[in-house]
Write a protein that binds this DNA or RNA. Structure first.
Length: 553
RNA sequence: GCCCCUAUAGCUCAAUUGGAUAGAGCAUCUCCUUCCUAAGGAGAGGGUUGCAUGUUCGAUUCAUGCUAGGGGCACCA
């Protein structure tokens, strides 16, 4: 429908430009979308304003020329009912009722594929998110990253991208040593041997639990007979295994899916780090100074150059990360999306620089920050301290408020802004809870269709759906594919949650104004089709958010 | 000191990426169920979009400078 109108406008624009003796710029674009205010038609277009930039004429004058040209091209077979000039130079398109209604047939036929598009065709996206160190349980912050990342993966796939969600597993380096030593000390303590606890070691009670499990289920006290080096290595290995099992369980419960867990350790085993630095060296981005090896990230706009190999011979954190991103490149991905916590904020320029040095064009690299969440209970912020090992874990959260509410609250705001998470509201099974508002709309329709006792048919008189509430709802449903494309382009899943609220509101309004199952069989058939189309959009949308779609509540 | 993010109704946030009279939810007040789920709907009040200049047909959106809050500036990870 919209495409037909676009074709119409494009042909008229070309004719107009030809008539004016100007050439249309290659990047010429305009908006065509439903206006905010009802009564301004079904699609509003600002093309006259845009042409004003090209031809240096007044927008209103241009619109006055375009209007008759457009009207001349709309005949019997055109979906356009009429075109109005308003607000200076806006062209408002009013569509024929039966053509509007034809959308409902389309939705019904496409069903679970309604909203799917080829927008991201050719894009091979590697989407890295969560990537929490396996040194403790997942926190609220990881939870939000998980929810946002997973929704994004679902949306990108639906809009035609090839997507590989990946978890980068930091199972090497200093933090792992600390974890291993922390467990080892607790293991000794439980066997009544005092050892000094490592500075900056992991204090949480779960470390003791892991040590206890090693004693009770695995090794008894036999580690004491090993060399300390081997014993610590075992503790580290066991701790990572345990922690990853917890993490994977949480992610599974949250319906968060990863194709692959990419181990940092394998980069060293396969000498990938050396290889990556070799690549940078060949391209001339490395230099030595003060005994260390540096990456000239300033070539790509970073504040200062960065050390990749310390004077001690050890690699910095950046080195394996470069190798990891080289692997992304070598595996054939042409678009990188990383979702990180706010603590990695200052790290973005150097990694972007590294990606560019490895051959990615700047526009293919997207590094987004998922901001922190503050939990509120009874209007008061819930204190969270990781220092003493007292977390509010992700597990505690979804067990308290449920997976649906947890996921929804995490994605309902723009991810780069700080989130206030109201625990009482999330648990509330009432009108105040935004999740229930959406799910209620879905359940209400499911129940309604059941009540009607009829199956949905597309052989209906679509022009019967002429009430303002009906037209508004249809207009709302029509925008689903567009909103998904917007969410994909901006990499912002919250746009979908916002849209679905509009759909639900629009439906509730329609429902309370009009009786759907009535004495009039034709009208009933038409309204049932509309209700069912709404159900399809809500169901597809909720599925993309990873939230259940209840048939009854 | 330098860099990044944020600033919109009492509160939490939108505004289709520069479009028409800046919109929702919560909170406050008023109203709507002999009938398909009232977990719903209708209505009222509430705004100098932090401040100031600028860019143009048009600015909440872009630029510059302030102000306030948050975060970051390691041969840490």
């Amino acid at each position: 429908m919209k495409i037909k109108i676009e074709d119409l406008i494009n042909s008229v624009v070309d004719a107009y430009c030809a008539g004016q003796g100007v050439s249309k710029p290659a990047d010429f674009g305009y908006d065509l979308h439903p206006p905010k205010e009802s009564g301004r038609g079904d699609l509003a277009c600002n093309v006259a304003f845009r042409l004003a930039k090209v031809t240096r004429q007044k927008p209103a004058d241009i619109a006055n020329v375009l209007l008759p040209m457009l009207v001349a091209k709309t005949g019997e077979k055109s979906p356009v009912e009429k075109i109005e000039l308003a607000g200076g130079a806006f062209l408002n398109f009013f569509l024929k009722k039966e053509d509007l209604g034809a959308l409902l047939v389309e939705i019904h036929e496409k069903n679970e594929d309604y909203g799917r598009s080829a927008f991201g065709k050719g894009k091979k996206v590697i989407l890295e998110f969560v990537s929490a160190n396996p040194t403790g349980p997942l926190t609220i912050a990881h939870g939000r990253q998980a929810a946002v990342g997973d929704c994004l993966a679902r949306i990108l796939k639906f809009t035609g991208h090839t997507v590989h969600p990946e978890y980068y597993l930091n199972d090497a380096g200093r933090q792992m040593n600390l974890l291993a030593k922390s467990v080892w000390v607790r293991y000794n303590e439980l066997l009544e041997i005092e050892k000094p606890f490592p500075e900056d070691g992991y204090q949480g009670e779960y470390i003791r639990d892991i040590a206890r499990t090693i004693i009770e289920k695995e090794k008894k006290d036999s580690l004491l007979k090993e060399t300390e080096e081997k014993a610590v290595e075992y503790c580290g290995h066991y701790a990572v295994k345990t922690m990853m099992a917890w993490i994977e369980e949480d992610l599974a419960k949250m319906h968060v899916h990863f194709d692959h867990y990419f181990s940092e350790k394998t980069l060293y085993v396969k000498k990938s780090v050396d290889h990556a630095l070799e690549v940078l060296k060949e391209r001339g981005y490395l230099f030595e100074s003060e005994g260390a090896l540096w990456f000239r990230s300033t070539d790509f706009g970073d504040d200062k150059d960065r050390v990749v190999r310390k004077s001690t011979g050890e690699y910095t954190y950046l080195a394996p990360d470069i190798a990891y991103h080289l692997s992304k490149y070598e595996r054939g991905h042409n678009m990188i999306v990383n979702l990180w916590g706010p603590d990695h904020h200052g790290y973005i320029p150097r990694l972007k620089a590294a990606c560019q040095a490895l051959g990615y064009p700047p526009e293919a690299i997207h590094i987004g920050i998922v901001q922190l969440t503050t939990l509120f209970r009874k209007g008061q912020p819930v204190r969270m301290s990781t220092r003493a090992g007292e977390f509010v874990t992700l597990r505690e959260l979804y067990q308290e408020v449920g997976v649906d509410a947890t996921r929804f609250f995490f994605v309902m705001r723009r991810q780069e802004s700080h989130l206030d998470f109201d625990l009482d509201l999330a648990k509330e099974q009432s009108q105040e809870n935004p999740v229930f508002y959406l799910q209620y709309a879905h359940a209400r329709i499911a129940s309604l269709l059941k009540f009607s006792g009829k199956s949905i048919t597309t052989h209906v008189k679509l022009d019967l759906l002429a009430a303002p509430e009906e037209a508004e709802l249809i207009g709302c449903l029509a925008q689903f594919p567009d909103f998904l494309i917007q969410a994909s382009r901006a990499l912002e899943p919250y746009r979908l949650s916002d849209y679905l609220r509009q759909v639900a509101a629009s439906f509730h309004k329609f429902y309370s104004c009009h009786r759907i199952v009535s004495e009039d069989p034709e009208l009933t058939k038409a309204r049932l089709l509309l209700a069912d189309a709404t159900r399809i959009v809500l169901r597809n949308g909720l599925a993309l958010l990873g939230i259940s779609q209840p048939e009854s509540m």
